[in-house]
Structures are given as C-alpha cells and as structure tokens.
Design a protein around this nucleic acid. Structure first.
Lengths: 344, 344
DNA sequence: TATGACTAGTTATACGTATGACTAATCTTG
DNA sequence: CAAGATTAGTCATACGTATAACTAGTCATA
C-alpha cells in the first residue's frame, strides 16, 4: 500500500536534500538552486506524482491563503454572484474562496470544536446575523478570525459592505410616483432580518419624502410564492369590499414575493400593470421570466463580493478599513404603468 | 501582540501537561483523566479562548474530516439542494462539507500547486467533466483524493450517482401522449454537457417507444430566457408558414428555456397550453412562478447529494461502491393540455 | 505483605513543510 | 595569491497536535 509521496521522497528520488526540493518547488528563491538540479527535482516530483501536503504547509506558514464565504443558503442565486465577485478579487491576490452555506437545522454541533471550516485566514459573511457567527469567528473578537460582513447590520463589530438600499428604493418610488401613483402597498417579508428591515425603512422614507401626500400601508407575508399569493389575495379582497382603499402600486420585499402577488392579482381578476403595478427587489432570473416582466431593483451582488473581499484582504495586511456601500440599480420592466386615473 | 493560545498555553494555565489538555479536549479517552482535572482544563481553555489549530490537527491525524463539493456554478439553485443533502449525511458522520464553485474563466492557475481547497479528505463533483477535475483530484487516480461524481457521465473512472432521467422522461412523454399529443418538438441546450446529451437520448427513446407513430424534431438554443425565446420564435414562425408542421407539444431541456419558449409563444400569439403545451425540466422556483405554471420533471437534487455523500464516506472507509441512480419525478402543472384536435 | 490491576497522569515523538543558519566550493579582484 | 564575495547546496529546527509508551501512586486480592 503506497503512501502518498512526500517532499522527502522526491528528495531521495532526485538525489538532493528535502530542503532543496522545498526551495525548488516553492519558487521563492530565484537563483538558490542551479537550473540543472531544479530540473531534476521537478522531474522527480512529476514522476512520483508529488502533491504537497497542505496541512503541513498551513501549519508551517501559519496561514492557508483561503477565505471562507459564509452564506445563509444556496437556494438564492444572489449568493452565487457574491461568490463570483469575491473569488475574482481573491484570485488576484493568490487567495482561494470556499463557500460554507449555513447548515439549516443540523448545525455545527458535532464535537466541541470540530468546525471543519476553520483552516482559513478570514471569513466573509453575507446576510447573516453576527450572533450566529459567534462560534465560527471566536467570541473574543480580538483574536478570532478576521471577519468582514456584507449585506448585514453595520452596527456590529465587524466592518460591513452594504448595498445602499435607500438609493434604489428612492429610484423605485420615484419611478412609480412619476407614473402618477400615490397609494402604495408594501408586501413585506415576515422574517426579522436586517436586510428586510432596511428595505422597509427605506421605502417608508422614500414615500414620506414625496412632495404631495402619498400613503403607504404595510402587510407581511412569507417569502415564498404561495405565501405571498395568499396574503395578497386576502388583502385585495378586503380592499375590494371597502372600495377606493386599494393601492395602485404594490411594492414587494423581493422578487419571489412579487411572483406570488402576480398570481393573487390574477386570482382576483386584476390586470398587471393596468389595474395594479407590482414591483420586486433583487432582480433574480425569475424577474425576467414572468409575464409581464418585473420592474425591480438590481442588487450589485458581484460588486458586493468584490468590495468585501478587498476589505478582508486589507485587514489581513494591515488594520481595519471602514464600511462601504454600493448603490442598487433600478430596472424598469413591464409590471409598472400609470394608474387608471392618470391615464383616463 | 498576543498570539493565539495553543494547547500548551492551556496546559500551563491549568497546571497540567499538554497531553492532558489534548486528552481532555478530544474526549476520546473516557476515564483517562479525573473529573476534577478535566474541569480545570476546560475552564482554562474557555478562559483563554482556546481554539485548536486545525492545520496541526489535520497534519497529525492525516485527515480533515472535510469533503469538498465541486459544482459548476452557484447561479443554479439545483446545487444548493445537492449541498443540503450532502451536508446532512456528512454531519451524521462528523464530516463537514465545503463548496467550491468552479472558477469560470480565471481558473486555479495561480502557483504550481496552491489549490487552496486541497486540505480535504474527498471530493464530490456535481455535473462536471472528469477532465476538468484532473488537477484537483490528481492525475494518477490510484492515489489521488477519493472522488464521487454525481449527475455526470458514469463512463468515467469514478463512481457515479445519477438521476434516472429516462424514467422521468418516459413519464413526461407518457403524460403528453396520454393527453393526445403526437407531434413533439425538442428545444435542446446548445452546450455539449453529459446531462443534456442524456436528456436528449432519453426523450428520443421515449418518443420512439410510443405505440402509434409519433414524431420528434429537435432544435438547439442557448440555456437562457432570451436565447430560447429567439430560437423558439423563429421555429414557430417557420412552422407557421408551412401549415400543419407545427408540434402540439414543446419539450424544453430545462425550465429556464421553457420560460423563453413561453415568451416566444406569446410573441407569436399562441395560447399556452391551448395551442401549444410546453414542458421544462428541473423544477426550479421559476416553474411555479410563471403563468401558467410549468409542467416539468423534478430532479431529486437533495437525494443525489445524500447518496453521493454516502458513497464517498463508504469509500473513505473501505473499498469502492457501485454507481447508483435515483428516479426523477414528473410534476404536472398547467402548461400541458390536450391538443386542439383532441378536444374538438 | 507481595502482586497484579487500575488510576491519573507525564514524556517523547511524529506528522510534512519552509526557512534561518551554516558550509564547502568556486569566482572575483586588488 | 590571499581574501572577500558569490554560488549551490545541506542541516537543523519549529509550527501545534494526538497518541503510544511509560511511570508513580493507589487499591484490591490472596
């Protein structure tokens, strides 16, 4: 049973010392070894199929040049884009990125300290609560793994990179107001996540800031197609009974909920956008697939990943950088139109 | 500048030897240490905020109890479900799973051997080509990292866990044939991936197996909403000119393409499913969101992940297991109906 | 009380790598 | 040609952990 070859095996095969093998293969010492010897070593390494033991290297160097990206789930392609951005920047600096989706129920409660993902130099955490990360990062934030949060509450201890939701929301509300809308409904996510709290606040602010009197009413629903559908249907039916109460524009906390709202509108016999303008948030694939195509706000997920990784690498080098934010971009599609009153 | 505490620091603080700390904290030696001493050690560890150095442990143990899940992209939520299944099974055995999305362009061409993701015991690769994995797994398959493929060509060297697409496809075609359809179009993905080759073959076989003469025509399109829309629109227009040539059912290689086909049908003034039944494949979120809801085949992604992880753990224990396959499940929704001829 | 078994630890060592310190040989230069 | 500088390597060591092998003390049994 042949063990995996070590640098010592390569040294023996090449007739040199283990140090020489290391010097040749790391390539950090130009001119320390004659071209001839170097060639011999490299050939031996190839012949034996040598691959360095990363655990040993990591131990020796005290670093892994690997960053962990912690995300709540992989069901949402948003995080795929975050990864892409982060990985691009990391690669430029010789770092790798590995993704750790948060284990939903069956958490990391194995042995007292067997988090398998700790052989890393830093952590990027997207859309997570700081408390949740406590055991991963180390309670005493002084000496724990360097951490940068993104799309998260900037009030925490870690540097944060966020989307300027207020900006995107102002653009969205401005677009609707420009079309003539004055009565807004907000279909809000029924979970207590920072992301959605911020969206709610930004929406309220944007409506309040409108010049002439505009109204905003909020209801919550689950972040699923069916959940949003049910909640919206009830809402529309109730509003139908009392008459003019119904909003002309329905702003949903995310695109999935907007898809549910579409169904509810049709269930109730309403035309989109004729009778009801509907908007989403995120701009996932679905936004383009539904009919009519959904007006939404595109989050710069890739940019978030890039900025966050830059910040983390900066920390790994020197001190702590400040928080940053990027603007969301309004994407106008077919699900928004002037309200009947304006057109008639 | 305080270093991160080691087990030796804990030992000093607790007034015992480093071995004792190790014995207490691994917990593998019940009764080797008195409850009192154990308590003292644990307190010291907590007080100092000790967290074991994983690189050192990995080096010592020769294993990491971590498995890498390699996926082509995170844009497709399918892989999120694969992860969930794999992580569940892994956790039961004290393993962790970390995800490595294949870096699109800017590959792992850093230093000669600095793949950051190699401190792992095994690899699960989903929907990838074996050649692509070569450098990750090690050329000489004898001594490389144990590998299990899923949703991949079973002709390769590694054990494979697959979806029995033929089964799902037979169910799908059977459903359509039962509704009265005889003329089928196949909108195929224009990339040369094993997954799609198999779908194409399974579809052809299923149609051929139909009792009375049924026809199947294939065209390719990009796997995007707009790509599929354009291709389908051209197809429908051409068929329109020559009359009865048009199929009554359009089977798409995946749900995203079906969304494009929806748009093309509407562009052409066709009713779904009245004039044209459309089906997808995968059952992603979008399938439920579009109008009418999409008839499709649900892939048991989570089950795939579970089975593949089981197989990998089995390899890590003993020898090699055989390939396995799971059945896809037909999900009938509203996008399929009898063709006009049958209803009239 | 002598002997073996058990208890509760300690000592010593190896995992595989990277690198500072050392050395021997060759080269350069006044 | 002597002496410093350069070249091309080797030697020794440390990173932090887990565990096999050992030891000293205690207990039970005959």
């Amino acid at each position: 049973m042949p063990r995996r070859p070590t640098s010592r095996d390569v040294a023996v095969a090449a007739g040199v010392s283990q140090s020489t093998v290391s010097i040749v293969l790391t390539g950090k010492w130009p001119g320390r070894v004659s071209p001839h010897t170097a060639q011999t070593v490299r050939e031996a390494a190839t012949r034996l199929g040598y691959r360095p033991n990363l655990a040993a290297r990591n131990l020796r160097l005290g670093q892994t040049r690997t960053v962990l990206l912690v995300v709540p789930t992989l069901a949402n392609p948003f995080f795929g884009a975050v990864y892409t951005g982060a990985a691009r920047v990391a690669a430029e600096h010789g770092f790798g990125v590995v993704v750790y989706p948060w284990p939903d129920g069956h958490g990391p409660a194995r042995s007292p300290f067997s988090a398998p993902h700790e052989a890393i130099d830093g952590v990027l955490a997207s859309s997570m609560a700081t408390e949740v990360l406590a055991d991963l990062v180390g309670q005493d934030t002084d000496m724990g793994v360097p951490l940068v949060m993104l799309d998260s509450d900037p009030a925490g201890a870690a540097p944060t990179v966020n989307v300027d939701v207020a900006d995107g929301m102002r653009a969205l509300v401005g677009h609707l107001a420009g079309l003539g809308h004055r009565r807004f409904w907000h279909l809000a996510a029924d979970i207590d996540a920072w992301t959605f709290r911020v969206r709610g606040r930004a929406l309220a602010d944007a409506v309040t800031a409108l010049p002439d009197g505009a109204t905003l009413v909020r209801r919550t629903a689950p972040i699923t197609v069916e959940g949003a559908r049910a909640a919206t249907r009830v809402w529309l039916r109730e509003a139908g009974r009392v008459g003019s109460d119904r909003a002309t524009a329905l702003l949903c906390d995310d695109d999935v909920m907007a898809a549910g709202a579409y169904k509810a509108a049709r269930d109730t016999g309403l035309d989109i956008p004729g009778d009801l303008s509907i908007t989403g948030f995120d701009d996932i694939l679905l936004a383009e697939a539904v009919e009519p195509e959904l007006t939404t706000v595109r989050l710069p997920a890739q940019g978030l990943g890039e900025r966050a990784m830059s910040a983390l690498l900066e920390i790994l080098d020197k001190g702590r950088p400040r928080g940053l934010s990027l603007a969301g971009e309004l994407v106008v599609r077919a699900s928004t139109a002037p309200p009947r009153a304006v057109r008639d």
